[in-house]
Design a protein around this nucleic acid. Structure first.
Lengths: 331, 331
DNA sequence: CTGTTAGCGCGTTCAC
DNA sequence: GTGAACGCGCTAACAG
């Protein structure tokens, strides 16, 4: 049987309260007694039960992480950094996937709340139905995607979209395609809006402006492949010379499909992704993309959740263009 | 304030015990009373506290998942399926990354044990120091990598290695390289041993046998790139015509490096990976690989942990060759 | 500075 | 078939 404070107390010849105080560090305890208790703890291999403590404090040392899908490299990266930081601070992270399903999300959150988590980090689904449910306790910050009434830490998606368009236009492209994410998600909308606003501001040449086509897909490899095929299945002289995507997975799917269709990247087609997942620098050709500062996002989120940094109003981190090999000047 | 059983009881005009019985379903409760209680539960939006229940039963509804690194797509995939199955059964999964550090692993497990998890699914690090610590309670199954004294569910790594070698030899390759994983991990050793055993059994031709070179790397993209460079930086007539790797990430890094060195895949070099991560079918060229049945692994592990399927002795699932575009017959 | 005591929310065992 | 009481492991408040 696992030893409890009671066992330690008895074995050390002191009372429960004293053991508790030794465990709490800060309280004032006699040197000798403290040593004796610590010895006993060591000898018995005692380790405190989070269960008892959590019940008493009505607050566990669990941080809930609610995301659409852990196999999305961006979220995996986020999860990793959150977990490292949380673990260093003595917290554990509970993983909950929503698969972009509002009902699943609701259920997951419900169950999470029953655990009295120290905090929640959530990338909410599109039409989340939980906004009010997470009122004040526990601290909840949203990442990547906003949720009414909660503080957000995220990359500036509008600016990211703008950056991508600016970059492509600067390269001389004038027939441009865009593969968006699901129209129901805020991020998709923001990235697209930043992108198309910048396109709209492009100077007109020879009396006509930029040709711009948008298709909507999912945030995965396969969708990038399918939507790419749709965008590229037109006569060569009408085909876009550059395509931006709403995330890197789509861009990689697009790469795949370009190759299958015999369209060379970047000679015939420039591609720019979004996120800068680890893989972006490993595909052929290496992917030019808009980088999100995942580490920072994780760090700020954890700080906010653990109360070591108040956060009011959305925190929008600046994206950056990472230029690699999938883009070229249009001649 | 979150309502408790007490609130429900008072509001329904019954006692605590009765509410508890209603919640437990199975016990015999008067029809009218049951309905009234359920109504009140609905009205109050009551949901039971896992904390209280867990403390009482000394068993939480948490399943600990201890893995080296969630950004490894194989583990992400595993985590996803485990989480789906766990969630469906009313359990949550706690994520713990070890980064292949035995000390970190020990600390993570220690903290996990304080939560009285319903079960633990672990892919132990190389020289794990926890084998005895996880004696009987809670149920613990290891995946991917073995750990003395615990049941294992995994792919048959030796057979997988053998399959890769057999496949490459069958394609006519006789100068073959191998990029292994860290020599300290069981899986690396097993995959390599299966591979080299099969190589050794190859019929000798023109009086000489197969040329076989092995290098050791880490299980990531970058290492595949570096080790590939090492294997390929020799005069063309001495260069391997085929290389197998211990996982897909290495193979993708190798793809990257071949491209950089101007070596064509599969014309000049055949590559076969291991795992079949989602990405394997998306890189250029699509990767031939040895597939692990991740879904099955997740399913068996969860069943074992939740006690719905006893498991004695290691369960070794059969790997399969997935032939794609990164391999070709040697002429 | 230390011991004692009272619950945190829940399930269970005993009377009734 | 139902209610009352106890205790899971722990911490905080109070008394000594």
């Amino acid at each position: 049987m696992k030893p409890t404070v009671k066992d330690v107390a008895r074995s050390a010849g002191v009372s429960l309260g004293t053991v508790s105080r030794v465990l709490a560090k800060n309280a004032t305890v006699n040197e000798n007694i403290r040593n004796r208790v610590e010895e006993v703890i060591e000898k018995l291999g005692y380790s405190p039960s989070s269960l008892g403590r959590s019940l008493r404090l009505n607050k566990s040392d669990i941080i809930g992480l609610v995301i659409p899908d852990i196999t999305n490299p961006f979220f995996a990266d986020l999860a990793k950094h959150l977990e490292i930081l949380a673990s260093a601070a003595g917290y554990s992270v509970l993983l909950a996937n929503t698969h972009d399903d509002p009902l699943a999300e609701k259920k997951q959150i419900q169950s999470l709340l029953g655990r009295a988590p120290a905090g929640i980090v959530i990338a909410p689904v599109s039409n989340s139905l939980v906004s009010e449910r997470l009122s004040k306790e526990p601290v909840c910050v949203t990442v990547d995607r906003p949720l009414a009434g909660h503080s957000l830490v995220s990359v500036d998606n509008v600016e990211g979209g703008r950056l991508a368009a600016e970059y492509l236009l600067g390269l001389g492209h004038r027939r441009i395609g865009y593969i968006g994410g699901p129209g129901t998600t805020e991020v998709s909308l923001q990235r697209l809006s930043g992108f198309s606003d910048q396109i709209a501001r492009a100077p007109t040449e020879h009396g006509r402006s930029v040709e711009f086509t948008v298709v909507e897909g999912q945030f995965d490899y396969k969708s990038g492949e399918e939507m790419g095929r749709r965008l590229l299945s037109v006569p060569a002289n009408l085909r876009p010379t550059a395509i931006a995507t709403a995330n890197d997975q789509q861009a990689i799917g697009l790469l795949r499909c370009s190759r299958d269709m015999g369209i060379r990247v970047p000679e015939d087609l420039s591609i720019v992704g979004f996120d800068d997942i680890p893989l972006a620098s490993l595909v052929l050709p290496r992917l030019t993309t808009i980088r999100q500062p995942v580490h920072e996002i994780a760090e700020i989120a954890i700080r906010a959740v653990l109360g070591r940094g108040a956060i009011n109003g959305p925190i929008l981190l600046p994206p950056t263009v990472v230029e690699r090999e999938s883009t070229a000047r249009f001649l």
